[in-house]
Nucleic acid binder design. Sequence first.
DNA 1: TGCATGATTGCGTCATTGTGCAAATGATAG
DNA 2: CTATCATTTGCACAATGACGCAATCATGCA
Lengths: 122, 122
Amino acid sequence: MTQSCTNISPKQAAQCCSPVDTLLDPELFKALCDPTRALILACLIKCARPCAVSEIAECCAVDTSVVSRHLATLARAGLLDSAKQGRTVSYAARADHLSRTLRALADAVDQSRLSPAAQSCC
Amino acid sequence: MTQSCTNISPKQAAQCCSPVDTLLDPELFKALCDPTRALILACLIKCARPCAVSEIAECCAVDTSVVSRHLATLARAGLLDSAKQGRTVSYAARADHLSRTLRALADAVDQSRLSPAAQSCC
DNA sequence: TGCATGATTGCGTCATTGTGCAAATGATAG
DNA sequence: CTATCATTTGCACAATGACGCAATCATGCA
């Protein structure tokens, strides 16, 4: 590890690909940045079982249609699984996937901290 | 651990406080959900050193004033440290804080998964 | 076949936010 | 004191997104 490698510019860093780049995914955080969605996801994580849309709607103060849209958004981000049975649709938190994703990002951040300016390309 | 405790409704879960509730903080994710901000933060994490605003502005395609605002947002969310020296302001990623926060959330999620419907209040 | 129910979608509205430009602020050098 | 440089702030504009209501779709039941 040389001195020159530990003191690169942000511009150089931008071209220097690291796991952080892909794991720090704005699309994932976009799903989590809304208070109503965060509440819904927290409920589903704590329930730890598939829940129907109407059931989930009871835990927040917005219209069922809004809840439905939020659930679709969370599912699209990979945070929920959905299953249709009859006319009810159940959503369940993908808790394992979420915690693994968070840990992977934490690992990548720590990696950059320990070996700055990833020697992968500088 | 009884059966009745592992099958609560989302509404009950909402009233059941868990570390997930506070750690799944929309305010944090709001800071991370913008592509430009994510890029800036990734750069600072990879640099692993304090960088001036003008320096950071070189790594993304928006106006310096926009970068300045994004940096303020990230700092307000606790993701960056700022230090003023003369007329230049330097921002540095709080990588340790970020990775600790992510791991704490991952732990809370796993905890809910292993002991559903936190026995803390149900 | 008709009707009720759970979920989704279309649409209009309102609030928020990302952006660029210009002006202002703060600090250093001549 | 004035000019210059780094950063921030004011302002206007456009895009995005959350929301409620109503209509629609899909399924189950009489």
